[in-house]
Write a protein that binds this DNA or RNA. Structure first.
Lengths: 115, 115
DNA sequence: CTGCATCCCACTAGATACTG
DNA sequence: CAGTATCTAGTGGGATGCAG
């Protein structure tokens, strides 16, 4: 079988799930520990709230992370990596290794991806 | 070190290199054998010449494939996977496996990626 | 056959202001 | 604090025509 664009190719669909502009960055932070909305905003200074909200929603919809709201005042929401999300760590590790071995002037993120 | 968007993160840079819209598809065909420009166009019916040309150029510039022009009449150009390009096969395999295990209604492309 | 140049549209994502 | 709504600029990518 070929990588027919009319079919839902596993490679391409996998890329769609986590390779949007800020998703690798968001996931990388959640790999190590849960974060609140505002924490992610501070950690990723260039992201707009709109994009942060949108990407978090999509990651939730795809089951890679979970949203944990606390009905306190002021409100508090934690985002947690799911088991399915954790299963992406080996994928990230492979991408990181390839980049380190084949690209110039890139920073390894191995420590970050390490469990 | 964190996946700082201001740095050239290995994971993100790696994704940039091969995850543009049609690049996985192009690479998948070249993994198995060299193809001519027109063959790729026929194999990927939905791609425009503009995008095919542009993606082939970028893949050349990144050293993933090589362009072999034959000064015949009419002209003939072959595109060949490079060693660096071949080194992406394990990456594709990991992405394929993750998709098959974690997504619904996706087609495995294992046979294609197989050497 | 293998491209390049141009025009154009749709969508992405940034900026800003507002809300429970 | 954690979002939502709206407007807009920039970009990706398709269609078409021309060229070596």
């Amino acid at each position: 079988m070929r990588m027919d664009p009319k079919q839902r190719c596993a490679v391409i669909e996998t890329l769609k799930v986590f390779s949007a502009k800020w998703k690798p960055c968001i996931l990388s932070y959640l790999f190590t520990e849960s974060k609140r909305y505002g924490e992610l905003q501070r950690l990723i200074p260039n992201i707009s709230r709109k994009m942060l909200t949108q990407h978090l929603k999509e990651l939730c919809a795809d089951g890679l992370i979970e949203r944990k709201p606390f009905p306190t005042i002021p409100p508090k929401v934690e985002y947690v990596i799911s088991e399915k999300g954790k299963s992406l760590q080996p994928v990230f590790r492979v991408l990181n290794t390839w980049g380190v071995n084949n690209l110039d002037n890139v920073c390894s993120t191995e420590e970050m991806i390490a469990t």
